[in-house]
């Protein structure tokens, strides 16, 4: 995607064969006191550019941990995480922050907008990290709000918006720096069925029309159905799911192998 097109239209859904995400033999162990608690063990995952992948699994299965590793919010205990060609597990804290600002858009369960700022100012927050001119920032905010269908609500404060609209503003904020990868952690978890469907429609459109690669963690099978592929994570293992919800291929990937 070019700067002139923050949402991007260059790549279609699954059009490219190059991997956007390449997780190789990753493990992540936390410590509870002195007791090690392994959450992910020797896990591998490959996502193609332009893919929309849903990640499901029970609470505590490591979905968010995996998402954090791919988004550069956490570091693996072992293995490699390569996103967009960058081995992000090797980057320093500072470089990793810069990489996130340029390459990843975050959508959370709650929109987490700053209550004192208008919608358009919330969307503009990631642009504080750029050297764009005020005019370019303005243009990007306008485009991002247009994509999520909230051009007319830019001046409104979060409390003046519905839950669905707030989540749309959150998505616009994720898009404004034109990242190639969107990571969504339970993006519909706090919304009713109708609003959830609208948000999912928007994510599908971003994937299909703007070529965004999307990794979505969800508990909701209906939401997962909208993705092009669904993986199930349980006991630190990944399995491919069918759209009828059945786990088709329980697999444990050796290091370096891809799903």
């Amino acid at each position: 995607m070019s700067e002139a097109d923050p949402a991007g239209t260059a790549a279609g859904n699954g059009a490219a064969a190059e991997a956007m995400v390449d997780v190789r033999g990753v493990s992540r162990t936390f410590h509870r006191g002195r007791t090690p608690v392994p959450v992910l063990r020797d896990l591998s995952l490959r996502m193609e550019k332009g893919e929309f992948l849903a990640l499901m699994g029970p609470s505590g299965s490591g979905k968010s941990t995996l998402l954090n590793l791919i988004a550069g919010l956490d570091r693996p205990t072992g293995g490699e995480v390569i996103v967009g060609g960058s081995a992000i597990h090797r980057l320093s804290e500072r470089k990793l922050a810069g990489w996130r600002a340029r390459n990843v858009g975050f959508v959370f369960q709650f929109s987490n907008l700053l209550g004192a700022l208008s919608a358009e100012r919330n969307v503009a927050v990631p642009l504080l990290l750029t050297s764009f001119s005020a005019r370019e920032r303005r243009r990007r905010v306008d485009i991002a709000l247009e994509i999520v269908g909230l051009s007319a609500r830019g001046k409104h404060r979060p409390r003046e918006l519905s839950g669905g609209e707030q989540q749309r503003v959150g998505i616009a904020r994720a898009l404004v720096n034109d990242p190639a990868l969107l990571v969504c952690d339970e993006p519909t978890g706090d919304l009713d069925r109708t609003t959830s469907a609208e948000i999912l429609d928007l994510l599908v459109a971003l994937n299909r029309d703007h070529g965004k690669t999307i990794l979505m963690v969800t508990h909701d099978p209906v939401a997962a159905e909208r993705a092009s592929r669904t993986l199930h994570l349980e006991d630190g293992r990944l399995a491919e799911c069918g759209h009828d919800g059945t786990i088709e291929v329980p697999v444990h990937e050796p290091a370096g192998a891809a799903v």
Binding site: A71, L73, E93, R94, A97, G98, R100, A101, R102, F106, F108, N112, L114, V125, P126, L129, R173
Partner: peptide
């Protein structure tokens, strides 16, 4: 949480 969000968006520590 808000500070975590800023860091996620790319704000350095």
């Amino acid at each position: 949480g808000e500070i975590g969000l800023l860091k996620a968006l790319g704000f350095t520590s």
